[in-house]
């Protein structure tokens, strides 16, 4: 695996301005993403996990410039792509693709599969009209669909088949990087496994880099090289998957992992979960200091006042938590 960063995200911020009240009389700011910094390495699968509203999907949209970043940089091939306008962005669009969650609504119902897959090929001039048919057939074969699907319409396909088409469409651009935004969450378990295998195969074949956004930790554990945990618009922890699952540092990560059910009845019955109390606060008025402090079992005074620093607590293991910082410096040793 190349350890070169493919993309560098620096202090990325995304705020949405909304109007509340029956007449939209109250302006408010949704703190969807606050001060996110991380690298995406060439050829890796980096997953972002967290609960709804944590900003993981916003991250994917913002770093592809589909949402205009409020602040911060996304450096790709030496360029800060989030400040590019749509026209200047176009050559990068081809290289940076996305597959969405709901295969039922990401395909234009009026276009055949062949048209949908062929459109980006022609648009980005990746093949001539004469080569188009072969190109479409190759792409469909890549995602395990027979060529005759080209003349079908999306509503004739099952969810899994549609998701294969969406992947083929992203591949048509010959991208380097694909954001998989909950790309398997809407699929049935048995079909999910098919698509995961497909994504893994394609990564090997084309040397793709994935940003895999998901809430299913079992799947994330299976496919990721590194995993980032987000909470309420901030990164809580980011490290290799082994480190994260074996040695989680952030109390939120620990709680999240403890909530994941395992397919083992005896283990599940005897297991003592560390169940978090309460709900995720509203991103309209996130808590001061560390955003997790309202639900954190080990919260200290400082947590409600000071935003914890995003730092490399262990080699390659980033975390933002006062308790972790204190634990390390206080005991001189490492926790866990």
């Amino acid at each position: 695996m190349g350890a070169q960063p493919l993309m560098r995200i620096e202090n990325l911020v995304k705020h949405f301005h909304v109007r509340l009240g029956a007449f939209g009389e109250r302006a408010a700011t949704v703190h969807a993403l606050d001060d996110i910094t991380f690298d995406i390495l060439d050829g890796e699968t980096l997953s972002l996990v967290g609960e709804s509203g944590c900003g993981k999907s916003t991250t994917g949209f913002t770093l592809l410039n589909l949402h205009k970043a409020t602040h911060g940089k996304v450096i790709y091939q030496g360029k800060n792509i989030v400040e590019l306008d749509e026209k200047a962005m176009r050559p990068y669009r081809r290289q940076l693709q996305i597959v969405f969650q709901d295969p039922y609504s990401t395909l234009n119902p009026r276009m055949t599969i062949g048209e949908a897959v062929g459109e980006p090929i022609l648009f980005h001039k990746l093949a001539t009209k004469a080569e188009l048919k072969d190109g479409i057939a190759t792409l469909l074969a890549d995602v395990g669909l027979p060529p005759r699907f080209a003349s079908r319409y999306p509503h004739e396909l099952s969810g899994g088949q549609r998701q294969r088409v969406a992947i083929a469409r992203a591949l048509a651009c010959q991208p380097k990087f694909i954001v998989c935004d909950e790309a398997i969450s809407a699929l049935d378990v048995s079909v999910q496994a098919q698509i995961i295998n497909l994504l893994l195969d394609l990564q090997q074949k084309y040397g793709l880099t994935y940003l895999f956004i998901a809430h299913d930790l079992a799947v994330v554990r299976h496919i990721s090289d590194r995993v980032g945990v987000m909470y309420l618009g901030r990164l809580a922890e980011l490290t290799s998957r082994e480190e994260l699952f074996d040695n989680p540092l952030h109390p939120y990560t620990k709680a999240l992992l403890s909530a994941v059910p395992e397919a083992d009845p005896a283990h599940e019955r005897s297991r003592k979960r560390q169940v978090l109390q309460g709900d995720v606060p509203s991103p309209l008025s996130p808590p001061s200091g560390c955003r997790f402090h309202t639900r954190c079992p080990v919260a200290m005074d400082v947590c409600s006042k000071v935003v914890p620093e995003w730092r490399e607590a262990l080699p390659g293991h980033h975390v933002a938590c006062h308790a972790v910082t204190e634990g390390i410096s206080g005991t001189g040793g490492l926790p866990g």
Partner: peptide, 11 residues
């Protein structure tokens, strides 16, 4: 979403 998908393709 298919409009966003089209934008993501750079159309």
């Amino acid at each position: 979403p298919y409009i966003t998908a089209a934008q993501a393709l750079g159309l």
